[in-house]
Amino acid sequence: MPIPLRLRIALLGLVASHACCTWLGWELRDRSADLAAIRVQATQETGRADTAIAARQQDQTNAQAGAQAESQHLALQSVRTQQFTTLQQDIDTHAKDTGRDRGDADAEFVRIWREANAGHPLRP
């Protein structure tokens, strides 16, 4: 085989090899970019999921705190209602006592009611 033909074949092989290496390099670069994009997307989705979970947990905590506060409020309201009922009964009993009139009993009720609303302890 003549030398110029061998050089042409070698040159053709070299060009083909160079083209294959270039194509492979581009493919690897594209796949690396795709993998990086997938990793970024997965990280973002994980972050969004974590944020959603934290928000749900916070909502649940807030709901529990609200329910507990409402329960305490209702319990306090029940105690106050019971105190006022007892006070009204005491005042009615006072009004029926001889020597006292209903006006004094009403005034005493107003005084006791104001003390209870102001948060001062009730005297027996």
Rank of each mutant, 00 (worst) to 15 (best):
Pro2Leu: 03
Pro4Val: 01
Arg6Trp: 07
Arg8Asp: 08
Arg8Ser: 12
Ile9Pro: 00
Leu11Gly: 13
Leu11Thr: 11
Leu12Met: 08
Leu12Lys: 05
Leu14Phe: 13
Ala16Val: 15
Ala16Phe: 09
Cys21His: 09
Leu24Tyr: 10
Gly25Arg: 07
Gly25Cys: 03
Glu27Asp: 08
Leu28Gln: 13
Asp30Lys: 10
Asp30Trp: 08
Asp30Val: 07
Arg31Phe: 07
Ser32Asn: 04
Ala33Asn: 04
Ala33Met: 04
Leu35Val: 11
Ala36Trp: 02
Arg39Val: 15
Arg39Asp: 15
Gln41Asn: 11
Ala42Glu: 12
Gln44Arg: 09
Glu45Met: 08
Ala49Gly: 01
Thr51Cys: 02
Ile53Phe: 06
Ile53Asp: 09
Ile53Gly: 00
Ile53Lys: 11
Ala55Met: 10
Ala55His: 06
Gln58Ile: 03
Asp59Pro: 00
Gln60Lys: 03
Thr61Val: 07
Thr61Ile: 14
Gln64Tyr: 14
Gln64Leu: 15
Gln64Pro: 02
Gln64His: 11
Ala65Thr: 11
Ala65Pro: 01
Ala69Trp: 02
Ala69Lys: 11
Ser71Val: 00
Gln72Trp: 04
His73Tyr: 13
Ala75Ser: 13
Gln77Met: 13
Val79Glu: 13
Gln82Ile: 04
Phe84Gly: 01
Thr85Tyr: 07
Thr86Met: 04
Thr86Pro: 00
Gln89Arg: 12
Gln89Glu: 11
Gln89Ile: 07
Thr93Asn: 06
Thr93Leu: 09
Thr93Ala: 11
Ala95Gly: 02
Ala95Trp: 05
Ala95Met: 06
Lys96Pro: 01
Asp97Trp: 02
Asp97Gln: 14
Thr98Met: 03
Thr98Phe: 05
Gly99Met: 02
Gly99Gln: 01
Arg100Asn: 11
Asp101His: 12
Arg102Cys: 00
Gly103Met: 03
Gly103Val: 05
Glu108Leu: 15
Phe109Val: 01
Val110Phe: 03
Trp113Arg: 14
Arg114Thr: 12
Ala116Thr: 09
Asn117Phe: 06
Ala118Asp: 11
Ala118Gln: 14
Gly119Leu: 01
Gly119Met: 01
Pro121Asn: 00
Pro121Ile: 00
Pro124Ser: 06
